[in-house]
Write a protein that binds this DNA or RNA. Structure first.
Lengths: 365, 365
DNA sequence: ACTCTTGATGAAAGCGCTTTCATCCAAGGA
DNA sequence: TCCTTGGATGAAAGCGCTTTCATCAAGAGT
């Protein structure tokens, strides 16, 4: 006789001397089965090493017990961390996590989501508000609950969990203005198809405008999220002779790059130049100078997103919009601007690696 | 009449005026179907917005077209990056990625893998050789191909893709010895249930031993992989009065922590203390001083792992052991040891934040 | 002209499970 | 004592697809 390599529920049922239906119930709804019967079935399960067949279960029950999460990239530690906590939470509820990344390409994202829909995920987690209309159509057609994270949808059309990137960025600008900075520059991620980056730039602009200040376009550089790109960007800004005392960065990775470049050029942070980040990754507080940044409760986002999604899948209701608190953390990378003669001077054509000639250390603030 | 929310293959078949089997074939093996028929079916697919039902397909075909990857943590950028490339490669082959993480807990790993097996993944990717016996049993019973990454299995019992952590670590020690260092200390990740960390410590020990040098147990600190922990560890080593001129770190994150702590204590790297890392994350080359470390082709690992797994799932054969080249990258964090009177002195009970009194800058090497 | 291939298509049997719906039996009510 | 009620169980119908296997033309071979 040919033994199959694995046991089916039918085999368990036969071994326990019950019908298939009873065996199924014993596993799904133990209360509906007499304790004696139940334990016979559980014995059989253990003895045969029975492992339920997910696909069969999904097909019959129309629920896959999987959740899909799509992020721009796992290389940004904030996404990696939140995916991590998300996974932990849903795993403990018996769900599995399907992940996808698209590298900030909205068309690629549609492909990824479509693969998830095909797999019959019970819910989808998205990052931000910028998505292809086709993606929204796909999700609507499949009637799969989805949720926007890392941003809030003020219109409440979609379920969202996050914070206002605009307001948070504005508070950074506010802090800098209170320090009496009046000349700003910004290094941002690409704003096309990235609403978070766009909102952060807008937030800074608005806050400045409210005080009659400007953030001219040529002082806003949009670059890939990498340390090397950020270093190069600060270099370009400086080499172009821009005179600013505060540099707002779109996230901590970019800010770190700026800090590194400033150090390499002998520019003292914060005395000659104030630098801010966004996210509060671990390095932000450990680096020297420690980075003034916006603290995000990264792990909480994964956890709450899991919670909300599980509730909705279970037929429960959650508020359309869940705002999580974020706040400015002032550390050592910001200080009042230097007096005029202590400002960072644009370096010469010699390659920009020279320390500013006007560099003079100011006292501690 | 009640319309279903989505189209089934039966609906497509009816719309195209063919049988279910033909429709199925048209999608799976287009060559077996007459071009005219095929295009009628494709029209119907497009018109109805048909999306195949993954679970049904998996049930009928006994292949889920999903691959599971289990890593210790996504917070380490090397895992995040390799998962990223892995995803890209398998997605382009029509596969979906199920991820799991276990936080260096082997029992938790069994749970995660068991969830993947239940989902019927076609293959599983694991990190390292240290796993619960139960995990191996589970995978064997389900007859699912799996692969070890980030380490090689010299016994060739399992399929593995990686490099010798031991040899790589030894080459770091070798470099340091060539610089004439004789007093070593090491900051490692926890070695229990982490063969990579264990092998790296062993590699350093062996290399030293070959030259009659020792790495005493009290100079090896095992800590969690975080910058803060690494800073504290170096502090403890120093405060304990250990005298060493070379600090080998288990990975770049730990090395970064050490660099930061050294800077905070006014210890000049590399002139007073040489520090090495392992992994070559982006920051390693951008940081100042740039870190001497082992370069790993992180993206390649994800890519090759995907390739090998897809081949095996497709019934193909690959070598049991795939060794990828890694190499030492010498940068600015290592130099010959200082002369005796320039050594780092153990700081006093005052908290260890004072620069070493004996600190004297040596010239460039 | 007749059988033999060959290639395209269709019919139908599951894949392993969930989920009505029906059945049975013991206890409670009249 | 008979009938009702409800709890436990079983029978059976799918869930949407893949995959033999059978069928049927139409061209090839003799």
């Amino acid at each position: 006789m040919t033994r199959r390599p694995y046991a089916r529920l039918t085999d368990v049922a036969r071994a326990a001397g019950v019908s298939l239906s009873t065996a199924s119930r014993a596993l799904a709804e133990p209360d509906l089965v007499l304790p004696a019967t139940r334990s016979r079935i559980q014995d059989a399960v253990a003895r045969l090493g029975y492992v339920p067949h997910g696909a069969a279960r999904a097909l019959a029950s129309r629920r896959s017990r999987t959740i899909g999460a799509v992020v721009p990239t796992l290389e940004n530690p904030i996404f990696a961390t939140s995916i991590q906590t998300l996974h932990q939470r849903i795993a403990s509820a018996g769900y599995t996590l399907l992940v996808g990344s698209h590298g900030y390409d909205l068309d690629a994202e549609v492909q990824v989501v479509s693969a998830l829909v095909e797999r019959g995920v019970d819910g989808v987690l998205l990052v931000g508000l910028d998505h292809s209309p086709e993606l929204y159509r796909l999700l609507a057609k499949a009637a799969i609950p989805f949720e926007i994270t890392w941003a809030t949808d003020p219109s409440r059309i979609h379920y969202s969990l996050g914070f206002s990137n605009r307001l948070a960025a504005a508070s950074v600008a506010q802090h800098l203005m209170e320090l009496r900075h009046r000349e700003f520059a910004m290094i941002s991620g690409e704003t096309t198809s990235n609403d978070r980056a766009r909102e952060r730039v807008a937030g800074v602009r608005e806050a400045l405008a409210a005080h009659g200040l400007e953030l001219p376009a040529h002082r806003v550089l949009e670059i890939p999220f990498s340390i090397a790109a950020a270093r190069a960007a600060l270099g370009r800004l400086l080499d172009a002779g821009e005179r600013f005392t505060a540099l707002v960065c779109g996230n901590d990775v970019l800010a770190l790059g700026a800090l590194l470049e400033a150090a390499a050029r002998g520019i003292a942070v914060p005395h000659q130049l104030s630098v801010t980040g966004f996210d509060d990754i671990e390095l932000a507080s450990e680096f020297s100078p420690a980075l003034t940044t916006i603290h995000l409760p990264v792990a909480d986002i994964g956890h709450i997103a899991a919670e909300r999604m599980l509730t909705r899948i279970g037929g429960g209701e959650v508020p359309r919009l869940h705002e999580i608190p974020v706040h400015l953390v002032v550390r050592a990378s910001t200080a009042p601007p230097p007096r005029i003669n202590e400002r960072v001077r644009n370096s010469t054509k010699s390659g920009g690696r020279l320390p500013s000639r006007a560099a003079v250390r100011t006292g501690r603030r």
